[in-house]
């Protein structure tokens, strides 16, 4: 049973289906009510489920996340929206000090089943504060589950799983793909958090990516194929928990790996992936693991962003440097 829909619609469907299945699921945030969200992700939820199930709050992210934590303590499953990546920062204290730690603090007696949805990353020509890749802050915080779908089917499946998770989940939405249409098979979707997907099988090298970088990696693999190089692509889907098994199986198979991510590379998720692959697959590697990431700079102004974002050329350059000559 497949249907053509955008990523925004896939996320909307996941919210609807979760709200229908479970009365304790509530959606709130800024402009998510009558407007349906600035990206229209929550379109129609207030009119269809009522103001108690989907509502606008006063404009305060710390308030939104803090209140969600309290509601989660009292039997509800809040799904809150941060309007843009950089506007989640006022909630950082709540996320890091409480949302992530309540379960551990209380020896598991108080779990917080809540989801923080964050439109994230760039590629939309947005002004400052609208394009941050903030996943490393969350991934670095023990107690948070962090997922980043790369396609519309996963957008649906991972959100359903996130809402059902007993732990708090940061759900990162690659905003530049909100309006890309795709065939979505809701029934067949893999809703396991913590499992990476082999988005493309390849013999020569493995590209490892997540979120908005997966389509870029797939395009690079496509281009490499025309040049006679067979690249595989692993889509992490879930940053935390991390699927060492799938990633390492692919890398062991090819002996070469490039990690692709849009965030600055320093102290990043890409660095963690590269380190893990190196530790786990060292004896299988033909070359050091390479990272293709954004520069270590604040996200650039719109006219400069194309210099910053990893593109297929940069990925293929990195692949070229994986010591192929020694194979001869």
């Amino acid at each position: 049973m497949t249907a053509k829909m955008t990523m925004a619609q896939a996320i909307n469907s996941a919210l609807r289906d979760a709200m229908t299945a479970d009365d304790s699921v509530v959606v709130f945030g800024e402009d998510v009510g009558p407007l349906g969200g600035v990206f229209r992700v929550t379109e129609g939820l207030t009119s269809d489920f009522g103001e108690d199930r989907c509502f606008d709050t006063p404009l305060a992210e710390s308030g939104i996340v803090g209140m969600a934590a309290g509601m989660a303590m009292n039997g509800m499953r809040p799904v809150v929206e941060m309007q843009f990546d950089a506007f989640a920062y006022p909630a950082f204290e709540q996320v890091v000090s409480h949302v992530a730690k309540f379960g551990n603090r209380t020896r598991g007696t108080l779990r917080l089943p809540m989801v923080i949805r964050i439109p994230y990353a760039g590629g939309i020509g947005g002004v400052e504060h609208h394009c941050d890749s903030s996943e490393a802050y969350y991934a670095h915080t023990a107690g948070l589950t962090v997922v980043a779908p790369a396609n519309n089917t996963d957008a649906y499946a991972l959100l359903r799983a996130a809402i059902e998770s007993p732990d708090p989940v940061v759900y990162l939405e690659p905003k530049r793909h909100y309006f890309s249409n795709d065939e979505v098979d809701l029934a067949a979707a893999d809703s396991t958090i913590g499992r990476a997907a082999v988005a493309r099988k390849g013999r020569d090298a493995t590209l490892i990516a997540y979120g908005p970088s997966v389509p870029v990696a797939l395009a690079a693999a496509e281009e490499a194929a025309t040049e006679g190089r067979d690249l595989g692509v692993v889509d992490l889907r879930s940053i935390v928990p991390f699927d060492d098994d799938t990633v390492c199986e692919q890398v062991k198979h090819t002996g070469r790996a490039v990690v692709v991510a849009e965030a600055p590379g320093f102290a990043s998720v890409a660095s963690e992936v590269a380190a893990r692959v190196t530790e786990h697959c060292f004896h299988y590697l033909e070359a050091p693991v390479r990272r293709v990431t954004g520069f270590d700079i604040p996200y650039p102004a719109p006219k400069l962003e194309h210099f910053h974002l990893p593109d297929t050329a940069r990925i293929l350059d990195a692949v070229d440097e994986l010591q192929w000559e020694e194979q001869l």
Binding site: D31, G33, L35, V38, D56, P58
Partner: peptide
């Protein structure tokens, strides 16, 4: 505030 009226 975008769509949210003062009363909220």
């Amino acid at each position: 505030a975008i769509s949210v009226p003062l009363a909220r």
